[in-house]
Computed example of a mutant assay.
Amino acid sequence: MGYKLSIENFNSALKELSKEYKIYAPKVLEGKGRFSDTDMVRYGEISTVEEIEFNKKSQFSYKEVLLPISQTLFFFTENEMKEADMEEKAPLIVLRSCDINSLRRIDDIYLRNGFEDPFYKKIREKAKFILIGCENSFENCFCVNMGTNKTEEYDMYLKVNGKEVVLDVKDTGLNKVVSKFENTSLEVTPDFVIENEVKVNIPENLSQDVMKSKMWDEYSERCIACGRCNFVCPTCTCFTMQDIFYKENEKSGERRRVWASCQVDGYTDMAGGHSFRNDKGQRMRFKALHKVYDYKKKWGYHMCVGCGRCDDICPEYISFSNCINKLEKAMDEVK
């Protein structure tokens, strides 16, 4: 159902929704940038539409709402274990098409990969998603070539047009709230990017033979194994487990899961001191082929959604889109 509301009325709708939901959106965090006196666009809780940053790409993805950077799973003592309480309010998340497409990838890993993760499932089942459109492509985006520039999988579409807010509401519960503030319906079509400046080409003949290419040597020299590319990626889902023991009672504590990165030292450490992919070029090879080769073999579509955040964040200016575009030449090399 399409609606057109004044900003004031939409903010009233958000206030009504906040009784049931915690509303998250990309917002400007002043002074929180990576360099002195710079800002950062990152997901945070909002209460008005004016707080939402529509014109800049968020530097981190929405995934930290569904998959917290550090999440306590349960508490334990000598005699018992108690599962951590969940946030009572459901998350209502404002995000772009590429991120909504990435949600399908996270669901694959946590819900359809031979088991269901109960901690993720509890949050995921309650979550609702508000799409914001992209009238123009952002720097380093290549969502069009990855087929993630469009989506129909949203509960509500939101666009601010001057002093008015245009909505397309699909979810019954959200529609019940919004319709209190506006009963006039209209046709609403989301804005989707149809062209990116950055283009990528994944070769049709891509195979595991590309692992033998010398193209990976470049990344052994350039990558510093900081893991930022994984942490900002909306489809990276790896975590490690930590048991925290309390000083007051060393036999009690909590178990947390914490984000992990296949690019950092220690990721492949095993009992007995064994470790794999110590070379940073091998780690880049593993990540790249997982994103555009292995995943598609199992699920039928690529893991990467072309958001370009990895290119944005890399302190060594390593471009993942350039890496993808080198694969064709690399396949010619190993034939």
Rank of each mutant, 00 (worst) to 15 (best):
M1R: 03
M1G: 06
G2P: 06
Y3D: 04
Y3H: 02
S6Y: 11
S6A: 14
S6E: 11
N11I: 02
N11W: 15
S12K: 13
K15S: 14
E16V: 14
L17P: 02
A25Q: 03
P26Q: 09
V28T: 03
G31I: 12
G33L: 09
G33C: 14
R34G: 06
D39Y: 06
M40C: 07
M40V: 03
Y43V: 03
Y43C: 12
E53I: 07
K57M: 09
S58G: 02
Q59M: 08
F60W: 10
F60L: 10
S61G: 02
V65D: 08
Q71C: 02
Q71S: 06
M81R: 14
K82E: 09
M86C: 07
K89T: 15
K89R: 13
K89Y: 13
A90E: 05
L92Y: 13
R96N: 08
R96E: 06
S97A: 08
C98F: 14
I100E: 11
S102L: 05
R105V: 15
D107T: 05
D107F: 07
D107A: 07
D107H: 05
Y110D: 13
R112S: 10
N113W: 11
F115C: 11
D117F: 14
D117S: 12
P118W: 15
I123G: 03
A127S: 13
K128W: 00
E135M: 09
E135G: 03
S137P: 08
F138I: 08
E139T: 04
E139V: 03
N140C: 11
V144K: 13
Y154C: 01
M156T: 01
Y157I: 04
V160N: 05
G162C: 04
V165L: 04
V165H: 01
V166E: 12
K170D: 00
N175M: 01
K176D: 00
V178Y: 06
V178R: 02
S179V: 00
S179G: 01
K180Y: 13
F181H: 11
E182Q: 09
N183R: 15
N183L: 10
T184C: 07
V188F: 07
P190I: 14
D191T: 12
E195S: 11
V200E: 05
I202Q: 01
I202T: 00
P203G: 05
P203I: 08
L206H: 14
V210M: 08
K214C: 09
K214W: 12
E221M: 10
G227W: 07
R228L: 13
F231Q: 04
V232W: 11
P234G: 04
T235M: 12
C236E: 12
T237F: 05
Y246G: 02
N249Q: 08
S252G: 06
S252T: 08
E254N: 11
R255V: 15
R256G: 04
Q263M: 14
D265L: 12
Y267M: 07
Y267H: 10
Y267N: 07
D269C: 08
D269K: 11
S275F: 08
N278M: 11
D279K: 03
G281F: 14
G281I: 02
H302F: 14
G306R: 07
G306E: 00
C307D: 13
G308H: 11
I313T: 12
P315E: 04
Y317C: 15
C323A: 15
I324T: 03
N325I: 01
K326R: 08
M331N: 09
